[in-house]
Design a protein around this nucleic acid. Structure first.
Lengths: 218, 218
DNA sequence: TAAACCGGGTGTAGCT
DNA sequence: AGCTACACGAAACCCA
DNA sequence: TGGGTTTCGGGTAAAC
DNA sequence: GTTTACCCCCGGTTTA
């Protein structure tokens, strides 16, 4: 088998969980906040952007998978606007940053799929989270005397495993639509990029220059 | 009077409108897309982030005001998830980028307030937009044979004027809660930043280094 | 080919 | 195969 | 103070 | 003072 890809999974909320590794290996994982409590949305967004940038730079994942936010209408309006903005905004900003860093292999995974894959049923969080948690312990992905035993972390681990299974069908499952979509998107992105880049070499240089200049203020 | 501040207003949607200038002056304005049609969310987000970065860098506004997204529940569920993600995500990402570039004077304005301020009533878009449009013409902010006569543009102009009125009370209105909130937030941000920075000079240097290194790949 | 207009609005798992 | 039901997170508060 | 638990979920302007 | 009603973009299709 060729090298399994490095996968980074992010469960993005105001407190987020992350997990990364190659399918088959024991993943690293953790949880944290993108910004201190009561921070402005700007601070949170920037925290997320920085997190992604750093991951891409230092860990160099082959794939990034983010947990999809639940549609607001679903929760039957049971969520404040500001919560919504964060829940929707985080994956959005993360994707944007990845795109800006030319990391185009980003996909999005639904909670329900992750759960059914990982614990066999799509239960509501109250029930599912402890199950997920236990399974993570069982798998030895976190140890019971670990410092961080949060659900954010174990949820991310579940997501990571799901992503691995889906992205590396040779390890088990037949591919399903996440993979297909990722391929589709990748092709579309690549094509679009090609088209754009092909226009002129000049355009490339301008773009590159612009990007660099944006950041030299730091 | 001291120099009126340079205000940048953005009406952020997949097709966005912008307007900028100092209150009292004739504003510049326009509309465009953050990314070609059918682009991934990542592309759109990055487009927005780049736009903001460039504005901050080259125009150096004193204030940035973004149009607030309407809560999903409001639209009575009449909005797709992806639309939601974009509508909520754009302002979020914009604020994040601004924050990252240390531009903390960012506020958010509600459509209803803008409209009532600008045309005296909070009518539905179908009715309001043409009214706004006419008023912009009347004010000479766009000329009838202009190339871009889109509502995105005129909406942004209305927003800009509202922002100006609110942020420069000396020109007319008493301050209202947008200003107050901006001040509050600014103070909070500043305090938080101070606190953080005060911890150690070392932290500052690390942070700075990290930021720079994130971007040197460009 | 470009501009105006209109419709449409979540997805999945588990049970029947 | 078709139909139905159902899904969350942030911040305030309280208690150890 | 830290962690578990509970609660709450949009806002405005005009009409009455 | 209190109640009430209102609020949207995206993408596909059609038309000049």
């Amino acid at each position: 088998m060729t090298d399994a890809p490095k996968i980074l999974f992010v469960d993005a909320a105001s407190r987020y969980g992350w997990a990364r590794g190659r399918p088959g290996e024991k993943p690293e994982s953790g949880s944290a906040r993108f910004a201190p409590e009561d921070s402005s949305q700007g601070a949170i967004a920037w925290g997320a952007m920085r997190f992604v940038a750093e991951q891409i730079q230092s860990y160099r994942p082959d794939e990034i998978v983010v947990e999809a936010p639940l549609p607001a209408t679903l929760v039957n309006g049971k969520t404040t606007v500001s919560t919504q903005e964060i829940l929707m905004g985080l994956p959005f900003a993360i994707q944007g940053m990845a795109y800006g860093l030319q990391m185009y292999r980003v996909s999005v995974a639904r909670v329900s799929k992750i759960r059914t894959h990982f614990i066999g049923k799509n239960a509501k969080g109250e029930i599912a989270k402890p199950m997920v948690w236990r399974k993570c312990i069982a798998l030895g992905w976190i140890s019971a005397n670990d410092e961080d035993l949060s659900h954010d972390r174990t949820d991310a681990l579940a997501g990571w495993h799901y992503a691995g299974t889906v992205l590396c069908p040779q390890l088990a499952q037949p591919i399903d639509d996440l993979f297909v979509k990722a391929e589709e998107r990748k092709r579309r992105e690549a094509a679009a990029a090609d088209q754009r880049l092909a226009k002129t070499e000049q355009a490339i240089r301008e773009e590159s220059e612009r990007r660099r200049s944006i950041m030299e203020k730091f």
